[in-house]
Design a protein around this nucleic acid. Structure first.
Lengths: 345, 345
DNA sequence: TGCTTTTTTACAAACGTTTGCGTAATGTTT
DNA sequence: AAACATTACGCAAACGTTTGTAAAAAAGCA
């Protein structure tokens, strides 16, 4: 009852059958007679037998565990993603081993190494900002451990990934503002070294040119995402000869900083200046002055899809080793969400 | 190089020594001669040998993994806690297996069961709201798997836990308002079935009586934490004969709902009515109108302490099985944090 | 040199499970 | 009743590592 868990061996001894018979009976193997099958099952239940997963993992060389490596769990985006990952893994009877790189390459490398050591069947990774060398991921390929990247994708060929298409959202954002009558639309972007900044900018430009508006580079300023940086960026935009009546910002936080600053400058936020941003954090629903819309990137959906892909790869691997080597490249479309709370305020 | 990972056995064969020698050499066991030690080490490095964790787990009956079961990873409180847990586990060379109960008892039970099956050395748990039966935790004790509860503690004797003392924070909150000159202080509390509601209420009462103010039960109303519920609660407080000039709310969200409602009622939030709440979410720093202060519960600290305790228990268990059975009961003091952004606005 | 220590290494069992193959038991067909 | 097919089960190896104990080699001492 107490103490050590029951094993297959004990069941075998008590029932005077062989260990293999018990094992097969528990798995409902067809070559086992129905009577013994039931006998074994009954005793197993009575003893509260539970298979020793460690032994099984060892034996089969599989752990039924997927590793998740991401920069920062406490960021809303990632916690939503992991939450969804865990849920889909759970449904397929996998468990999730979690680790954060804190956006430092060295730690990411260590984590990959650690996870590789037979602990994990596959890996879900959102790469660290600082990662510039990707040998540790190649290594996984050599060890036949599948990896699916999500959100932050390394610039590699032949990888599986799911990411969010920023372009559509960006275009929607600009279109939304154009449709509202704005003609001079500024952008407070993130630092140029972030891929995300590039995507947002491209979407912006594409939307402008598609609407046959000429693109004015001076209306795009980048900032370091801090409150001070945002202030400066906003000031610079306001000083522009073609002073914008609407601004697209890198994310909701930047919008909020900018809004705060604008309010301290007594700018009319209802009619004079409107903001649209990225992320669609729940927070903006609580604000009195918030971006009028925000581009949702569906972290949960991304996480779920990435997990689905990985689990597919794993089951495929189990079935046959046909190395057809197709690579999953899934793009989740970003989508502009109007801030409803804002509008019925 | 590619294909299957190197094993101790292969190293042994190449070097013409026994498997045990290799094993001991790799562990720098003193009975191994220095020369062979180095030879082994060198070859291991060359082959890129990495111990097979699955085999080790199996052999030693230890996984160097701790399980974390909590209600909802995407809640800011828990993601901050897990983040800290992962960090401290990583430092001590443990990994974290993660699972969410989504606040349903049945799933929590399944997760405990799953984690028990030799997968996990110890468990960190924040129990589901609905959990009313605690047999699954007793079961862990029988299997000698230590559990440390955090934040949401079950009503059991002889358990390890770290929780946050709401009382001090509550008292601070009320004192803060009293000191600001408020004499009629209302409270919008959570539903009565939540332990957290009770704690907040007690702190409130204690602070009032300590300041020799008589406690008026009609100034405490509970709500279901929705926007509608909050509105109703606020209305009821405002209708009170002793209309409060300050209100303590169950959490930041409730405060924000209440503030929004108050603003739509044209109430002067700078002088007429002030709010204090719990959680201290980063969000309130972005708001124009926000609670003037919020009680911080230090999720990261709680998570870190819980992990520390668990890891201590595990190392203790490894060293000796002296069942001294002392139970760790750590209380983290909550603390009122003034909303700085609010004040220099 | 011959003996005892001390140092160094090898042997083998154990951890719990799965699974290929062999074999005993049962049943079927003539 | 002999021959065979079928069904039901047991044997034993394998997975990679650790570790107690035995044994070999080296070193010390007389």
């Amino acid at each position: 009852m107490t103490g050590k868990p029951a094993t297959i061996k004990e069941i075998a001894k008590i029932l005077n059958v062989s260990i293999s018979t018990v094992s097969r009976a528990l798995h409902k193997h067809p070559t086992i007679g129905i009577t013994t099958q039931l006998k074994v099952q009954a005793l197993a239940d009575k003893l509260g037998y539970e298979p020793n997963q460690a032994a099984i993992s060892f034996q089969k060389g599989k752990t039924y565990t997927i590793g998740v490596i991401l920069p920062e769990l406490s960021e809303a985006f990632f916690s939503a993603a992991v939450s969804a990952i865990e849920d889909t893994a759970y449904k397929r009877n996998y468990t999730v081993l979690l680790a954060q790189s804190h956006d430092v390459e060295e730690k990411e490398i260590q984590l990959v190494e650690k996870m590789k050591n037979s602990r994990v069947d596959g890996l879900l990774v959102s790469v660290a900002k600082t990662t510039s060398n990707f040998a540790h991921f190649d290594m996984l390929k050599r060890f036949n451990i599948p990896v699916v990247f999500f959100d932050r994708i390394p610039p590699l060929k032949n990888i599986h990934y799911v990411a969010c298409n920023m372009e559509t959202g960006s275009i929607e954002a600009v279109n939304y503002l154009l449709q509202k009558g704005h003609r001079s639309i500024g952008m407070i972007n993130g630092p140029p070294n972030l891929a995300a900044s590039g995507e947002r900018k491209e979407g912006y430009i594409k939307a402008m040119t598609k609407n046959r508006l000429k693109f004015d580079p001076s209306l795009i300023v980048s900032c370091n995402l801090t409150e001070e940086g945002t202030k400066a960026a906003l000031d610079s935009l306001l000083a522009n000869k073609r002073q914008p009546t609407a601004i697209v910002t890198f994310n909701d936080y930047v919008s909020l900083y900018a809004i705060k600053h604008a309010r301290s400058l007594k700018i009319d936020l209802d009619n004079g200046l409107q903001f649209v941003s990225y992320a669609n954090l729940p927070i903006i629903n609580y604000m009195d002055y918030a971006p009028v819309a925000s581009v949702e990137q569906f972290p949960a959906l991304q996480g779920q899809k990435a997990a689905d892909i990985l689990l597919d790869l794993l089951s495929r691997k189990a079935q046959s080793s046909d190395e057809a080597e197709a690579y999953y490249n899934v793009m989740v479309e970003s989508q502009l969400i109007e801030n409803k709370k804002r509008n019925n305020n």
